[in-house]
Design a binder for these strands. Sequence first.
RNA 1: GCGCCUGUAGCUCAGUUGGAUUAGAGUGCCAGAUUACGGAUCUGGAGGUCGAGGGUUCGAAUCCUUCCAGGCGCGCCA
Length: 545
Amino acid sequence: MLQKDIIKKIENYLNKEKEFVNLDFSKLSLFTPKNIAHGDFSTNFALIIASELKINPNELANKITSTLLKRKDKFFDKIEVAKPGFINFTISKEVYQNLLKRINQLGNKFGSSKKNKKRVLIEFVSANPTGFLHVGHLRNAAVGDSISRILSFSGYEVTNEYYLNDYGGQIKLLGESLQSRVYKILGVDKEMPEGGYQGEYLVDLAKILTTKKEKRFLLKSEIKYFSSVATDYFTKEIKKDLEPLNISFDSWFSEKKDIHESRYLDKVKRLLDSKNGIYFQDNAEWIKTSEFGDDKDWVIKKSDGNSTYFMNDIAYHQNKFEREFDLIVNVWGADHHSHISRLKASMNLLSNQTEKLLFVLIQFVRLVRDNKDVSMSKRSGTYTTIKDLLKEFDSDLVRFLMISRSSDTHFDFDFDKCKSNSEENPVFYIQYANARINSILKKSPLDKWNFKNVLLLNEDKEINLIKRLLNFTEIVSESAENLAPHKIAFYLQELASEFHAYYKSTKVLVEDDKILNGRLILLSSIKIVLINGLNLLGVSSPDKM
RNA sequence: GCGCCUGUAGCUCAGUUGGAUUAGAGUGCCAGAUUACGGAUCUGGAGGUCGAGGGUUCGAAUCCUUCCAGGCGCGCCA
């Protein structure tokens, strides 16, 4: 929030001088320098303009700065030029101190943006309803949900959607597998189909089914029946798996109902046809994606008459576009990256604005136990579901770790290192800061606060903490723009660390009521930011722990 | 073979979209801190040719290019 004020002030100052009126202020941006000695904010404005006009950047910076100094008010403490042409600004302490009031007034809204009337659809998880969610889906779920929270905090109207793949060959196979399990329990011989679902969990489902339904009924039922029983069951289980993680969806898009039974697929096919995007070859139908940015064409209708997964996906995305979102975010596993170019090509063919379509690719998580990779050991029985993982680790830790790296890096989840009480538990560190603050606030004898007392927060540590708090706004908008929740995780760790150090060096509950008051206001501001930040990650912030 | 992602301290990772003599954090290692509000905390130290070479410019971990290494994907499966 400070940056905008500063830029405005600079523009206002310079606009009053004839020689600067023509400057392109859209190039004026601020950054916070790494080195504290360089002030609170810097701009490379002079460097950029000078290189365009081919003049000496240092001279330009000097000219600009002397103009700024002529007009500067109490807002700025210092404005200086540094080689080769940076202009550095130091803001007055008072400005910082007084902003604490704003943080406290805004409370859980601090860091958020006003509603911008833009609608976002974010699709994530979308695991097939053929089993329980496992660790592979977890990172996707955590990242998707955090992005959703961040966007919504940033003013977007967000819809979380789960694409339910409840149709097609795999679902038929699932039905056959369940039927085979059921028949076996009923004492009727029926072979497991080739490539069928072998998992024990289907046996469990079969048991439930045989106690609920009559034998005669089950033996008469078609595959379709078993398919729908199974998909209904797993859909419910998936919802249950997500519940303890605090993840829920506004919309469940059923492939079966919303694409096939509704005949929506045919509509999109006709649309493709009307754009002259389809041709026949080898007894199948192909889409001309190669003419719209992909490197080859793809089959959309197989020679057996069924549509391909890809065709269904085209229809699904056409549907997303028809629902008129301003932004469509797909959180996909990295193994689907090749689908991006062909999907974009197809959407181009349908003349949609594909710049609205964004992708977040999630790299795989490697599970490590005793220095061994356990993520791939489905066969050996150490196949880890979300249910299993949550028995060992709490949801806060799991969610935090899953978003704590940028999603396009591979990431090791080391069981041994992540035991709840270990020092590798960054969540604790952050939550602990909040709990400490809370306990101090409780002990405070003051029943009334006067915000004028913030002026007594004069120590460097205190001013730096305020700067860090104000930075939260920027971090939120950065992570929204980049769809990158990990930025918030890193920020919170830094903030917690700075608080712990302050706590250690400075006693808050002092005799002097005014100083006490100032510090309490600071602490309560820190608490606000910690809680708001943790919320964006779907992590709780307990008062006691 | 082609495409995408990754390569930064012993390990796990950040690095503000090209910015400022000294490239950061956690962990691990070494050495310290409590008659204070929660020690599950804090302070200090050692540790790097940013995978390698070349290029672009005032300025490169960041952009371009070649190469090396790892992961993933290249179906009329979903």
